[in-house]
Design a protein around this nucleic acid. Structure first.
Lengths: 147, 147
DNA sequence: CCTTGACTTGAAGTGAACTTCAACTGTGAC
DNA sequence: GTCACAGTTGAAGTTCACTTCAAGTCAAGG
């Protein structure tokens, strides 16, 4: 069972032009061709596209993903490199999550701030709010009232 | 108390060129100038730079951050818009965290997979591993062994 | 006063990841 | 057979957020 590039695009929600680009960049080294030189995507190629997406989400560049695919093609002698790559991905994803958590805390403070401001009718009213009317989870950001 | 662009760059770890760019793009509308036309960063400008970073992390484009700064300058009549903006930011950050969580699960599967492969000496050995030797937290990804 | 070095500007350049274009070819439904 | 349409290619274009450059100004220490 194979899929055309259009079917694959539909299936994965990735534009066909993107997949041609990935192919050209060597991210789909095992992709075979069918009638008339058309790309014939097999299940393993769909799998590869999912892994590409995962590696992209982890913050890898196209060139690094190409490197991974080259290692994959070289077989068991590159297992160590591939293991290391995914360990680095893991660290990177965890760092991104921590960063996002810090961002969320600021955003939630701002949500509270503007909610209070709209219901009180002015920013000044929020700035003048007595300490004990500020929810505990937000108090740490009291010194960031500006803007 | 004011800081030069160089001091501010040092303080926040943001290149001076980036802050000039933000200024040019209207992201620092209240930034004042000191002797010789030099930018004089006050505490509120540092605060603004932190908010810019937060909004960027949330996924806003420069043009959207500029819009926010314009609303800020217009005062209390734009409180509603600013509240809505931060609510959208919150949704967007939560979605990013969910996406990252899904990525992490795949990455952790791959970590397990390559760890097993390196210790067993080959990928085939992992593929041949009996079901009951696969940790429960990973079993859901069994069908993604390829690549 | 003079020099050093941090600042100023507008304009041009960069890098990454696509996307679009133009010209062409082959497939498959009628 | 024919014809629309999905696919092919290399090259050029796009977008975004900076970054670098070139040419000039100004402040402050010696």
């Amino acid at each position: 069972m194979t899929y055309t590039i259009g079917e694959t695009a539909e299936l994965l929600g990735v534009p066909a032009s993107t997949m041609r680009y990935y192919d050209k960049e060597g991210l789909l080294p095992e992709l075979s061709r069918g009638a008339g030189g058309r790309r014939a995507f097999e299940d393993k190629d769909l799998e590869a596209l999912k892994v590409i997406d995962c590696l992209k989400q982890s913050g890898l560049h196209i060139s690094e993903i190409r490197q991974f695919m080259q290692w994959y093609q070289q077989g068991d002698e590159t297992l160590k490199q591939r293991q290391e790559l995914f360990q680095n991905c893991r660290t990177s994803v965890l760092e991104q999550m921590e960063q996002l958590q810090r961002t969320l805390e600021i955003v939630e403070y701002k949500c509270w701030y503007y909610e209070a401001a709209t219901s009180l009718g002015s920013e000044q009213a929020v700035i003048d709010l007595p300490e004990d009317q500020i929810p505990a989870r937000i108090r740490g950001y009291r010194d960031r009232l500006e803007v």
